[in-house]
Design a protein around this nucleic acid. Structure first.
Lengths: 186, 186
DNA sequence: CCTGGAAACGGATAGCTCATCCGTATGTGT
DNA sequence: ACACATACGGATGAGCTATCCGTTTCCAGG
């Protein structure tokens, strides 16, 4: 196995940059667009990223990794409730800030291996935080691990339904999460 | 202006029936499918319904009307909080029971006139119920009218993310709504 | 340098779905 | 029965995803 050729590496980076731009603009990320804006042929894009979702996953992965990292960090907090609440806040803020996260979160299990892995990791961390908070008696006992991801997605979705532009999204999301947290608190 | 021809009226009904079936099956409602299953040409579908969304709207309208009706009824309840909570419950139950509602709710303003109208009506009712409950001191004062629809959509979305099949959807939705209501309660 | 061949590129092309258009068929008032 | 508006059907075009293969580019080894 020869190491990758330099032009290929350069193009890979370039494609990713362009894709990130398009995602941030809110455009639906069509590979023909990416090709045109990157000044490359469509074939080049598809060689680097077999499907649209694969490209999207690569775009979203750094953010997902950051979220997973924040989770690990939250585990070191002293106050179980605060740790739990802070983690959820991070998750929601990530989702409403980065459209790519919403899309990969909505993608079915197992079509995006790295995403699936990171989601599992985040879920596991969330479960630990939840268990700690529940054991401390600060979270109602009927909240299940499997509820965390859906609820975060629900908050993000509600935020997108509510907001006209991206300007007030963060504020709205925080408000909704606050309400939810009050509902989860014992 | 001559009244509609009989075959056209019959086909209109037939298209709607088939569309309802497809929606209930969870299929994405593609007009070619509708045409095939109805034994009609594609053109016929498009003459009756200019776009996929228009057909979807017509499918969803009766349910939306029912929800609007329930709202009017809720206004006659004595207990302001119970009236409010019951109305939200109806909304959520409708959304998780009928996939068409979720789709029309997510569609942008003004592309579906009838839907826009009914959503406005439901929102107005919700606003009244919310105001009553807030005045009675049973709902936190920082909940705004515009939050109701997004929050209901968020609950439905969370439910769809959580549930494997349609079987446990209602239970999940009720659980999530309960949590939200606790968060909204003063 | 320069050259051979693997690696990467580009864009023509196939397949799919949505939507349109128009020649044909059908229903309806006279 | 006839004429003509109304409605029907499916061929057709447009846009997007994804593939395939002839051409170009990179990069060791001589």
């Amino acid at each position: 196995m020869t190491p990758q050729r330099k032009d290929a590496a350069r193009n890979w980076e370039h494609i990713l940059t362009v894709a990130r731009e398009l995602v941030d603009e809110g455009t639906p990320l069509q590979l023909n667009d990416v090709a045109r804006r990157a000044g490359l042929g469509v074939g080049t894009i598809y060689r680097h990223f077999p499907t649209t979702e694969a490209l999207l996953e690569t775009v979203a992965t750094p953010c997902l990794e950051a979220l997973a990292g924040h989770g690990e960090q939250a585990l070191t907090h002293d106050d179980p409730w605060k740790a739990f609440a802070d983690f959820l806040t991070r998750l929601v803020e990530g989702q409403v800030t980065d459209p790519a996260l919403v899309k990969v979160a909505a993608t079915a299990q197992d079509v995006l291996p790295r995403t699936t892995e990171l989601k599992a990791q985040i879920l596991a961390t969330g479960a630990k935080l939840l268990a700690r908070a529940r054991d401390a008696g600060t979270v109602r006992p009927d909240v299940h691990d499997d509820d965390l991801v859906p609820l975060m997605c629900g908050i993000s979705y509600a935020t997108y339904v509510h907001s006209a532009g991206p300007a007030d999204r963060l504020a709205t999301a925080r408000r909704y999460l606050e309400t939810l947290l009050r509902g989860l608190h014992a």
